[in-house]
């Protein structure tokens, strides 16, 4: 966490271009390739997670301040709960009742 004296926000510009790259990359994989559905979902899902991490670090300054460890644990825990809710719901509803 520095008191910014630089006059050009280089890390923001890099973050923005990487976000654009990941967005168009995901659109290309989903719409222009003929990979199996599951493969596409895994690839574009990974690109989305990468882009979310990019936002957290390059725009939201998650890696600064005296509470950065608490912040990281908080967000990782929320992400864990999110995965459990989404993947758990889908798993229970689609494979749970076929047995």
């Amino acid at each position: 966490m520095e008191k910014t004296t630089k006059s050009f926000p280089i890390s923001h510009v890099i973050g923005f271009f990487m976000s654009l790259l990941l967005t168009f990359g995901a659109a290309w994989v989903a719409l222009q390739t003929s990979l199996p559905m599951n493969t596409i979902i895994w690839i574009i899902g990974s690109l989305a997670v990468t882009q979310a991490a990019l936002q957290l670090y390059m725009f939201m300054h998650m890696n600064e301040g005296e509470d950065k460890a608490a912040l990281t644990i908080n967000i990782l825990y929320a992400a864990f709960i999110a995965v459990v809710i989404v993947a758990g719901s889908i798993w229970v509803m689609f494979s749970g009742h076929s047995h």
């Binding site: 908080n74 967000i75 825990y77 929320a78 709960i81 999110a82 995965v83 809710i85 989404v86 889908i90």
Partner: peptide, 17 residues
């Protein structure tokens, strides 16, 4: 924001199902 992540996760879960 951690709580908001969980709020949106429930809605994504519903959409996924």
């Amino acid at each position: 924001l951690g709580a908001e992540i969980v709020l949106f996760a429930t809605l994504f879960g519903v959409y996924g199902v």
